[in-house]
């Protein structure tokens, strides 16, 4: 079969790159996979702009306006958008800050926190501004598939990609549906 390779873009928003690590942790399966896909924008390629893609894999939730901007670009350019991991799906551990106001978080981090020296809240206009709460990506854009887990197992990534290749719904069997 000499079908066109699927174009895949990935990014980590308010995430920890753990999902990316899990994606790569597929041992010899990666040999087959690389026949199937090629990467567009991704931390793996260091390409900074996104072109037309078949699959966009989004790790992490939304914590600032730059996250929202990147997510919307992915949505515009990707035929299939996948929420990858607990943070993309429900905010995850970063959402623990949702019980505090942004101001309280900033003050704790930059003014009153343990070990802070030269206390000052950063105000560089280049810095993205924080959203009032960390939110899941499906609050802002339509998401086609969800890969739960912290991180999702590598086999689940393979299943998603194969499902898109075969133009079918992914089947996440019991061991692949994990929230931890």
């Amino acid at each position: 079969m000499s079908a066109r390779k699927l174009k895949v873009a990935t990014c980590s928003l308010a995430g920890c790159f753990g999902c990316h690590m899990s994606f790569l942790d597929m041992d010899e399966q990666i040999v087959d996979l690389i026949e199937l896909i090629e990467f567009d924008r991704s931390p793996l390629t260091d390409i900074k702009t996104i072109g037309a893609c078949d699959i966009g894999l989004i790790e992490g939730g939304l914590c600032n306006d730059e996250n929202v901007h990147v997510l919307q670009q992915f949505r515009q350019h990707c035929r299939i958008l996948v929420a990858v991991g607990a943070c993309a799906i429900n905010g995850g551990v970063p959402a623990l800050r949702n019980r505090f106001t942004v101001q309280e978080c900033l003050e704790e981090s930059y003014l009153h926190g343990v070990g802070v020296v030269e206390a000052q809240i950063p105000a560089d206009p280049e810095l993205p501004s924080l959203l009032p709460q960390v939110i899941p990506i499906q609050n802002v854009v339509k998401v086609d598939f969800f890969l739960p887990g912290c991180p999702p197992p590598a086999t689940a990534f393979v299943e998603i990609i194969q499902a898109v290749r075969d133009n079918r719904e992914p089947r996440l069997d019991y061991p692949m549906r994990r929230f931890d």
């Binding site: 607990a86 799906i89 429900n90 995850g92 623990l96 996440l172 019991y174 549906r177 931890d180």
Partner: peptide
């Protein structure tokens, strides 16, 4: 927040979510 919960894997709410095919809310 399952990843940071001690009962993850023993939790009946989580187990029902798995069993009923929930991937997200």
């Amino acid at each position: 927040l399952c990843p940071s919960c001690e009962v993850s894997g023993n939790c009946q709410l989580q187990a029902l979510a798995y069993d009923l095919g929930m991937t997200h809310s």
